[in-house]
Design a binder for these strands. Structure first.
Length: 484
RNA sequence: CGGGAAGUAGCUCAGUCCGGUUAGAGUGCACGGUUCGGGACCGUGAGGUCGCGAGUUCGAAUCUCGCCUUCCCGACCA
């Protein structure tokens, strides 16, 4: 019987969601604070999770024809300054290197907040002809932004991400590229991370500094808040003009290429935590879980024959482990089964296999799913053979649960009062006909505290219904939510 | 960056108001034993620059000033 003190190691989600989140990140050993404001240490378990997400996304990036490369961390101030809107957007959060050793530098160097500027500066020399296009590159790097308010994974000053950058001969090609990469992000979110996401286009006020338009996927967290989980920007010729990148087209006329950029960061780990976790800890999507199956052998006291039977079965599972089925046998001595269960639940391991005397006597093992806590017994051979399918099933259940949450927390509204009413009880994803004028966006923000228009939805159109704010015929359906 | 709260053992905190032997508890950790199908129990032990730096004082975890970090509410946020 557990004492109350033990059960309260993790603050329940319903008591204090923010506290639950921070405690979970630290207790599950995903990350911890570093001595510098807004910086974090990503611990091995958290980094392993990132590596699996990275591997999935990197595979898609390469499969769509992109190559990885690397640009330097430091960007000369003069490079950064050329695209006016961009520098204005980022200036408040750039960290500067001013000294080399004890010598003051003649030109300050920015620690990259993003790399469009240095990439454009370099490609100005490398692009000359339509034959040099398209340029399809990506880099996996850290970036630094001097954030006023930070939260582990969700908004840290330094974070890890991939930033893709492409240059194209035609606007149409760039548009297709923007869609292609948003599609990759949607696939990553839904098929790998089981996140409930809504793809769409950002309003002007939320568009990337220097972009023509920004596409985004918005994920729903289990408290009903939205989290931007990936963005894909159409940069048009804004940067290629500013950085004087030109090519000779097929008619021998000089032109500026069309450009895109797109990124997903370690923030998405925060999305995984907040979308799926519960009062017992993380619930990791099986496809990216560092440990997918935890095997807990339960010793049978002094019954040596039984103990070696149990060990033999555990070893058979261990041998079934591989890149596609990551199994960990928990043989830690002196730790009771209940504590091991709690340990792996806190870490969100999708499946637990328990092997005890009871099971061995019946020739079975007990399989427990993290997502719903349901246990079943299976024959040993059957279980080993079914492991990939059991993981797939766990993924589908997590996905279905997330989808149901999104559905349950979504509401259609057509008037401002209905919008306020929708948010009066709990945060939701509110969908409303919207004309896409900035004035109307402001009216919505004024009407309900702390909400923003996350995206204009791809899957739904206004079809002329009256805009929620001004009643003019609407072309769009806005997704309105509170956001991290 | 504005308002509020906090920082004492790995973690959660007491002690600070009212300065005074050797700074405590729970949990965690190590060792020994009994246990072992949901966070066990008994015993022993290790573990602290009291966030950092100045100042006041015979004496500072405690009082004063400065700084750093974290949390909450705002502002800001590709």
């Amino acid at each position: 019987m557990a004492s109350p003190a033990r059960l309260e190691r993790l603050t329940p989600k319903s008591t204090d969601f923010d506290k639950w989140y921070i405690e979970l990140v630290r207790q599950a050993e995903l990350a911890d604070y570093a001595p510098v404001k807004g910086c974090m240490v990503i611990r091995p378990y958290g980094y392993a999770l990132w590596e699996h997400i990275q591997a999935a996304l990197d595979g898609m990036i390469k499969a769509t024809g992109h190559e990885n490369m690397y640009f330097p961390l430091l960007i000369p101030e003069s490079y950064l300054a050329k695209e006016a809107e961009h520098v204005e957007g980022f200036a408040p959060e750039v960290a500067w290197v001013t000294h080399g050793g004890s010598k003051e530098l003649e030109e300050r160097l920015a620690i990259r907040p993003t790399s469009e500027t240095i990439i454009c500066s370099m490609y100005a020399d490398w692009i000359h002809s339509y034959r040099d296009l398209p340029v399809l590159i990506n880099q996996w790097v850290n970036v630094y932004r001097w954030e006023k308010r930070t939260r582990l994974f969700l908004r840290t000053s330094e974070f890890l991400w991939q930033e893709g950058h492409t240059f194209h001969e035609t606007e149409k090609e760039a548009t297709e590229e923007v869609e292609r990469m948003l599609e990759c992000y949607t696939t990553l979110a839904r098929d790998w991370l089981a996140l409930p996401v809504v793809p769409g286009t950002k309003t002007r006020s939320e568009t990337f500094a220097g972009a023509v338009y920004t596409r985004s996927i918005e994920a729903m967290m289990s408290d009903g808040w939205a989290l931007q989980a990936g963005t894909s920007h159409h940069l048009g010729q804004h940067f290629t003009n500013a950085y004087n990148i030109t090519f000779r087209n097929r008619e021998n006329v000089e032109e500026h290429p069309y450009q895109t950029s797109w990124g997903v960061s370690t923030r998405i780990i925060g999305a995984v935590i907040m979308a799926h976790g519960d009062d017992s800890g993380l619930i990791l999507p099986p496809k990216v879980a560092p440990v997918q199956i935890a095997v807990v052998p339960i010793p049978a006291g002094s019954d040596d024959a039984m103990n070696s039977r149990i060990e033999e079965i555990a070893t058979r599972f261990e041998k079934a482990s591989g890149p596609a089925c990551r199994i960990r046998v928990d043989r830690r001595d002196g730790i009771r089964p209940g504590e091991k269960f709690a340990h792996w639940e806190l870490r969100g391991v999708p499946l637990r296999i328990t092997i005890g005397k009871r099971d061995v006597e019946s020739g079975v093992v007990t399989v427990t799913r993290r997502v719903d806590g349901v246990s079943e017994t299976m024959g040993i051979d059957a279980c080993i053979a079914a492991l990939p399918e059991l993981l797939e099933d766990a993924h589908r259940r997590l996905q279905e649960r997330a989808r149901a949450m999104l559905e349950d927390r979504s509401v259609d509204v057509s008037t401002m009062d209905a919008l306020a009413e929708a948010f009066s009880e709990r945060p939701v994803f509110a969908n409303a006909p919207f004309c896409n004028r900035p004035e109307c966006e402001d009216l919505i923000k004024e009407k309900v505290h702390a909400v923003t228009i996350r995206v204009l939805r791809d899957d739904r159109k206004g079809e002329g219904a009256p805009c929620i704010a001004c009643s003019a015929p609407s072309e769009f359906v806005a997704l309105i939510a509170r956001a991290y």
